[in-house]
Write a protein that binds this DNA or RNA. Structure first.
Lengths: 143, 143
DNA sequence: CGTAGTAGTAACAGAAGTTGTTACGACTGG
DNA sequence: CCAGTCGTAACAACTTCTGTTACTACTACG
């Protein structure tokens, strides 16, 4: 059960909020969102908390509370969501320090760090090319 | 301790084998490799087992055994290593099935699957652009 | 002003994955 | 035959994630 699905959950939440907004429902409770994702409302509140800290959604507390998008779904890219949920890096470095007497052991971490950094940039570029509105449009294409 | 470092370990192992080969040592035992990575030989044997199943290294068993590269380090890309170690996907899908009554819940998985697939392709392209020989060269640049 | 409804968050259990370790059988060169 | 090495199982320790319960904080509305 340990696979990180926070990116998926967050995008699902935003797409569902975008659809509800288009239908005229400007605010949703965590229970209403949880009903679409089919999980516990606390999971949703945790995810929405990440999105709120990143400025992607607004929340109104108290009775009659709810969540709403902070900007148009066309203006929210998956890169915004990625930075909001802060997933772990794709590749981890050594857990123990390599043998620094060995020339490979001494230089491998900066060398790999550069490669991993380029990969991260490529991923960010791909994420930036897709908006929540596009994900919603694609989702609605399924009959 | 749960961050996946198998890609890093495998590339380190191959770079070290490439250097040893260049120095005239055509075969290395798991103990010798473990000395550079600074970890347990069983970890190295597990990693080398992945690389062997992918056809990247050869092994000779018995007394005087050891490991050697199956082809020149210029001909081994990080994509080959990636496919050999089979890391978990960058983004996981929902753990529970979304609510299929909701249009977003019904369509979100194929929509996200397409996006995630494009990202995977971008990562593969980056990995393919770097060889073990280049990682070794970069590592040796560190004084 | 009180109440009810909702967010925020802490605490915990369960599941899964990774590393590191020991142990032992399988294989093979000398 | 035997010594050295691989292959792999088994296990502990650790981390991370999800899901759940429970409780406090906050606020709209009667």
């Amino acid at each position: 059960m340990a696979e990180n699905s926070r990116m998926t959950i967050a995008v699902h939440v935003l797409a569902w909020m975008a659809l509800a907004q288009r239908r005229g429902q400007e605010a949703l409770t965590s229970d209403q969102v949880a009903a679409s994702v089919n999980t516990n409302p606390v999971i949703i509140r945790r995810s929405l908390g990440d999105l709120r800290r990143a400025g992607l959604v607004h929340v109104r507390r108290g009775s009659g509370a709810g969540w709403s998008l902070a900007r148009a779904p066309e203006q929210i890219t998956l890169l915004d969501v990625y930075d909001a949920v802060k997933p772990p890096p794709l590749f981890g470095m050594h857990h123990t320090e390599p043998n620094l007497e060995c020339p490979v052991g001494k230089g491998i971490r900066p060398a790999l760090g550069r490669v991993y950094g380029e990969i991260e940039q490529a991923v960010r570029l791909e994420l930036k090319a897709t908006s929540v509105a596009e994900v919603l449009r694609e989702s609605l294409r399924v009959p």
